[in-house]
Design a protein around this nucleic acid. Structure first.
Length: 412
DNA sequence: TTCGTCACGGTTGAC
DNA sequence: TGGTCAACCGTGACG
């Protein structure tokens, strides 16, 4: 991002639909950016040379009481959308908020929703204040209450296959042993013999298809075994707690489950495959990784890691042993560097549970220029207690390295 | 008025 | 490389 483009962004009408009505209105033609922010926030540490451009912004120091002292007030960068005008695919909902159809709300908003809910603010009020539909607020809060994660689920991808070579082999054996066996009988036997569990047992139709396509003529050589079975694969016994979840860090394919340098993958750990299970599984909730590993926080290129590289962000991920009040020492160190106003609410937002592409949402400006990496707000951490868990979400990294999506697309 | 639910149109990523 | 599929998303409407 060059300096010129940065200047353009800052001089353009901006929107921050989730800050205040005043701000949203100001984005529609008025070039004066008016932020409902505490006065002190006008003096946030400069992220770098380009940040001096921010001085061109005239800050209205009117404080929105409900935002004062909160993440969104403390870290207005997360809520700024300086490039909104350039977004051609953002839409405006009935409340005046901007959203991208099909894409998750940014972590900052999700976190804000949870924060406000924990302050006792009703969902309907949260909906109005943040300009997010009440259905969405309801959904995010329900998910948080259920899983403790504020993160969206993993988008895209496919289910792991249930018709593993081992299953096919067993079906073949059943069929050979009893040519008249029904598909449902095979299904029962797969369960009875422990080849599959109730979560990954193929459907009767799948078994029929296997019989028809892969086994078919039993008189023929075992073409499947001679081919794909050349390298015997263990039966994937998916986690009984969750369909399609994996018992360990390995994905069915064994690929893309890499652990970041210095982060050993241990059995039963949280390194999950992308969407299966989604970001809010039990194993995910119990996940611990990445927080201690900078490379997991920002990808090798400075971008947030993929979802599969994040065991989700959640309360359990940061045992108190790592720091004070669940705050990792490394975060504390950064806090010392960048002292922040105290707040009773603090939150951990995972660097990002989105895939990188998810990060390139309309909601955030390119952090590389707008907010330099490693700045005060990135290391912020407070705890967001989850009902019934006593654990906390840490929001040390609402990773703002979220370049604009269109920029990425343009690069394609 | 509030809130849970669901259809809808959309995006994403594995296959 | 492009298509398909099935996951997820937030919105908006309904009750």
């Amino acid at each position: 991002m060059d300096r010129h483009s940065t200047t353009l962004r800052l001089n353009e009408p901006c929107t921050r639909f989730y800050c205040s009505r005043e701000l949203a209105i100001s984005t529609r033609g008025c070039r004066t950016l008016r932020l409902g922010l505490p006065e002190s926030l006008a003096c946030l540490p400069s992220p770098g040379p380009e940040a001096s451009q921010a001085d061109k912004l005239r800050l209205n120091t009117t404080v929105i009481p409900s935002l004062e002292g909160t993440m969104s007030a403390r870290f207005p960068e997360l809520y700024l959308e300086p490039n909104y005008k350039k977004q051609t695919y953002g839409e405006v909902n009935q409340l005046g908020g901007v959203f991208v159809n099909g894409r998750p709300l940014p972590n900052a908003i999700r976190l804000r929703i949870v924060e406000l809910a924990q302050l006792g603010i009703r969902p309907c009020d949260i909906s109005r204040q943040l300009r997010v539909s009440h259905g969405c607020v309801s959904k995010i809060l329900a998910r948080y209450n259920e899983t403790g994660s504020i993160l969206p689920g993993a988008i895209g991808g496919s289910k792991p296959r249930v018709t593993t070579p081992n299953v096919v082999k067993s079906i073949r054996e059943y069929k050979q042993g009893d040519p008249g066996i029904f598909a449902w009988e095979i299904r029962d036997r797969l369960l009875a013999d422990g080849v599959c569990d109730k979560y990954n047992v193929p459907s009767v139709s799948s078994i029929s298809r296997i019989l028809r396509n892969k086994i078919g003529n039993l008189s023929q050589p075992a073409q499947y075994e001679s081919g794909k079975q050349a390298q015997p694969q263990p039966s994937i016994s998916y986690n009984h707690l969750y369909p399609y979840s994996y018992p360990n860090a390995m994905s069915p394919s064994g690929a893309k489950m890499s652990s970041p340098p210095g982060v050993p993958v241990t059995g039963g750990h949280v390194s999950i495959s992308r969407g299966w299970p989604s970001a809010h599984t039990v194993s995910n909730i119990l996940g611990i990784r990445a927080f201690m590993d900078p490379t997991a926080v920002t990808g090798p290129e400075g971008y947030p890691p993929k979802l599969e590289d994040w065991g989700s962000v959640n309360r359990a991920a940061f045992p108190s042993a790592h720091g004070v009040n669940g705050l990792d020492k490394s975060s504390l160190d950064v806090d010392i560097k960048y002292p922040q106003p105290s707040s009773t609410l603090s939150s951990y937002v995972p660097p990002c549970a989105y895939s990188p592409s998810n990060q390139y949402g309309v909601y955030s400006g390119p952090a590389g220029s707008y907010v330099g990496p490693g700045h005060h707000w990135q290391a912020q951490g407070t705890s967001l207690p989850h009902p019934g868990s006593g654990m906390a979400i840490h929001s040390g990294d609402i990773h703002s390295s979220m370049p604009f999506k269109h920029a990425v697309r343009d690069g394609r």
